[in-house]
Design a protein around this nucleic acid. Sequence first.
DNA 1: CGAATGTGGTAAGGTCGCTTACCAGATGTT
DNA 2: AACATCTGGTAAGCGACCTTACCACATTCG
Lengths: 213, 213
Amino acid sequence: MTAADAGRRYGGKTSGERRSERREKLLDAGLELFGTRGYAATTIEMLCSEARLNPRYFYEEFRTKTALLQAVYDRHVEAVFAAVLNTLEATAPSPRARLAAGMETFVNATLADERAARVNYFEMVGVTRELEARRRQVLRTYAEMIAAQISLLMDATQQAPGASLHLTAVALVSATDGLIIDRLTDPKRSNPTQADRDQIVATLTDLFSAAVD
Amino acid sequence: MTAADAGRRYGGKTSGERRSERREKLLDAGLELFGTRGYAATTIEMLCSEARLNPRYFYEEFRTKTALLQAVYDRHVEAVFAAVLNTLEATAPSPRARLAAGMETFVNATLADERAARVNYFEMVGVTRELEARRRQVLRTYAEMIAAQISLLMDATQQAPGASLHLTAVALVSATDGLIIDRLTDPKRSNPTQADRDQIVATLTDLFSAAVD
DNA sequence: CGAATGTGGTAAGGTCGCTTACCAGATGTT
DNA sequence: AACATCTGGTAAGCGACCTTACCACATTCG
């Protein structure tokens, strides 16, 4: 788009278009390999081979393997988050209805691609401090969303003295993640059925409601 | 103790005693390095240097670095679990009292050593399938404990149709872990104070009670 | 067509960590 | 004292992976 992206055309595409296509290929390769073999077991050569790209293009797009991991993570997180926001806007303003609808969208979108879920909940953990900070930031964002919804629902005088609204929200988000991880790691059925997801959503909406009342 | 452990004495210790001392040194070194530098950034040479042992003794005790990680994890998990069981036995049989007391012991024991907590919640994730299975097993054990307590408290007719007792228990255990992780990763105060822990316990007992009622 | 630029395949130099072996010194046994 | 066993330090062979460079071929532009 910009002047810097112009360059010479090749295969009917401008240099900027080719670059972003290669970037997409690398993101897809990262999703596939990180999500199946795992981050540590994946080498840069494997990524380039999966993406059918010369290793040099990897370094053109990403400084390190962790940079690719973060990009893969961000792409998925942003897609899920956008879907949830979209659902919230399209739902009746009743806080309970929005909670149930948002929860359902979140669980379904998160479990839609098992590879992405694995990257999200396993491969991103304990790699670098930057990635930890990013994960934490995402969790906080959801927690603040939840906290806002809760405070709409909750009678302020009802709140217990020692407990904290913020901590309760964090606990609920963790509970959500925990059920997703539980489903992901169930050895009996690694492929979560729609019934599984519905049960997760039901359990969580119950728990959220209970926390509010 | 056994005949096989006899061997020759050295430094006033039998060969079996020396072995287990070396094993303990390696476990301590693993706790220190895995818990501060991180698992991936720790080499076997570092571990041996930290333990002041010859590298060959590492391979005498552990086949791989992950074997040591699992041993470090197991040692801590068993200590915490024993402390919780101990508290439960020493507490009045009222389910609510036991819940609060057990929760307090768990949170305090888990956060007592920050290195162990980090190993538990960060370094153990996404390393190998065996370690994942071990983590999952521990989580399930706690979940079953919680489920048993809940079913004592809960009116059976009160249970919501879509929700599941087991899933609720898993969600509550995850909520607990989530608050611990949240405290561990708080950049403002990495050293959790007693007040922090009390607030976590209060928030969780509230949430657990709410889930039951 | 010829020059310039882009692409894919390959590999080579370099670093890092694993694993085992060797060696000098310390401690125990006869 | 003489020998056997144990220990710590060092390092060397080995393999894996990273990163960059080279080369032949393809595509575009003048």
